[in-house]
Each structure stands twice: as C-alpha cells, then as structure tokens.
C-alpha cells in the first residue's frame, strides 16, 4: 500500500467557463485504498469525479494515473485508459432499453473477444456478486432504485476495472441498504484488489469505509484537509470538524467525541 500512488491529483483547478469551482486541489490515492471525496452539497465533489473520469478537462493542473499524465495524452490514449475504470453514476444510469444482463454484457461484447457463452457466464457472475442472481431478464424500470444501483455496480465491474468510481452510492438508499452497499464495496475491493474512489457526504459511510479522504470546501473554493476520517476529527480546521460531526460538537454520531473547539 505504500508504493507509488495510483492516482495523483496535481494542483487541479476546476472551472465552468470563467467560473472557478475549486482551485489547487492536491491529493494522492494509494493503490487498493478506498478514497472518499467529501464536502457539502454543491461544493464540486461530483465535478472533481468528472475530471477524474475524463468527462471535464481541467482548467489547469492534471491528473496522473500510475505516474502517467491523463489529460496531456491524446484522445485514443485516454479512451484506452478509461477501460481500466468502472463508474457507478448516482442513479445507476442503466440503459433503460436493455435488460440487466444486456447492460452488463455490452462492455464485454464491445471490448473483449470472448465467445457469447462465456460472456453470459461472466454476466451471471457479476449480477450474482451484487445479489441480483435471477434478475438477468429484468428491465431497469421493473426493479427498485437500490437494485438499479447494484446493477450499475455490476456493470461498472464488467471489465474488472483497476479503479472503481462511485458518485453518491448511498444517495436514495435506506440505511440498511446503504450499509450493505458499503460492505459490498469493501468486499469487492478486497477480492478484486481495485482502488475505490467515492464521492459522498454520508458520514456513516465515510467512517465505515474510507482509508483516506479529502474535504472540499465551497466557501474557500479549495480542499481543506486530507487524511483518514478518524484523524480528521482532530483536524485543526473547525470547518472540517463541523462537517464530520454534523455541526454538533457535543454528541458525535460516530467514534468518540471530537476535541473541543
């Protein structure tokens, strides 16, 4: 885990046109770790994720994967790199005109030369891994939101990605489903050896699964802290502490009371 970082965010500035969202973000993510991007609503968490998966070009700065620049290479290089990623969007973003099996099979059919029989076996395995065995022939509109999310996870894992990105995985899930999803993410990380990057503001999730985290702050438009969430509870920055304790200094919902301000 102490080898060279798999992902490095190098002095990244994010902007929509002339409107700067966040500036000078620096972070490094170790291979095989669970890295959480946290912060209040609308602070640019999802925007940072979109920069990391190649959907938005940084205004300045770069993102490096395994030491190689992601944004300074040409489009083909980026496309090839994208195949090492699996992305789970907020609502699952399943293709609504395809069954769950077809959703998971599409990347396998497009990017591998596997025979149809093997593709079918892999699809059944992936759906079974997320607890959706037997739902192969369902359409996304016929299953619940939580199931859509798990199916989206199965699709994100289709190509055995090196890095899994999650955008608000627990949004819209009840606490138990959300906890099960967290556990699933950890188990998959352990068995697949993938690196996991999660955007979330669910404190319970953050404390349960994060090895490392950055806190983005909307007001100062930059990151305020990086570290293990439990260590960040002792952060000198009052805003980071307030976020991690839901602004309730007396009763922390998680491990131990924070140090008094």
């Amino acid at each position: 885990m102490n080898a060279a970082p798999q992902i490095e965010i190098c002095d990244l500035t994010m902007a929509y046109g002339s409107y700067v969202v966040m500036r000078s973000i620096r972070a490094a993510v170790a291979k095989g770790s669970v890295f959480v991007i946290m912060g209040g609503s609308g602070c640019g968490k999802s925007t940072l994720l979109r920069h990391m998966i190649g959907m938005i070009r940084p205004a300045t700065g770069d993102i490096r994967y395994d030491g190689a620049s992601f944004w300074s290479q040409n489009d083909e290089g980026r496309q090839a790199k994208l195949r090492d990623f699996g992305v789970l969007f907020q609502g699952g973003a399943l293709w609504s005109s395809m069954t769950l099996a077809e959703n998971v099979a599409l990347p396998l059919e497009e990017f591998t030369a596997l025979p149809p029989g093997e593709v079918r076996e892999i699809v059944r395995l992936k759906l079974a891994l997320v607890g959706l065995a037997g739902f192969e022939d369902y359409y996304p509109s016929e299953i619940s939101g939580g199931m859509c999310k798990r199916a989206g996870l199965a699709r994100a894992m289709a190509l055995d990605p090196e890095i899994l990105f999650f955008d608000e995985p627990s949004a819209g899930l009840d606490p138990i489903s959300s906890r099960n999803l967290d556990r699933l993410i950890l188990e998959l990380r352990d068995s697949l050896g993938a690196t996991v990057v999660i955007v979330t503001h669910e404190l319970a999730s953050i404390f349960a699964i994060a090895d490392d985290a950055v806190y983005l702050d909307a007001e100062s438009k930059t990151m305020r802290a990086q570290g293990r969430p439990k260590d960040l509870l002792q952060s000198p920055d009052p805003r980071v502490r307030a976020f991690l304790t839901r602004g309730e200094p007396a009763s922390s919902p998680t491990s131990g009371p924070p140090s008094p301000p």
Binding site: A128, L129, L132, A133, G134, F135, E187, D190, S191
Partner: peptide, 18 residues
C-alpha cells in the same frame, strides 16, 4: 480472491420468484 468472490456470489441466493 477467487474463493472470496465465489462466496460473495452465493451470498444472496436467487429468490424463488425472481
């Protein structure tokens, strides 16, 4: 890793009416 994944895949049995 293979053993873990096999266990995970059979953790949720296929529901009868699925």
């Amino acid at each position: 890793g293979v053993q873990d994944l096999l266990r995970l895949a059979s953790a949720v049995p296929e529901s009868a009416d699925a």
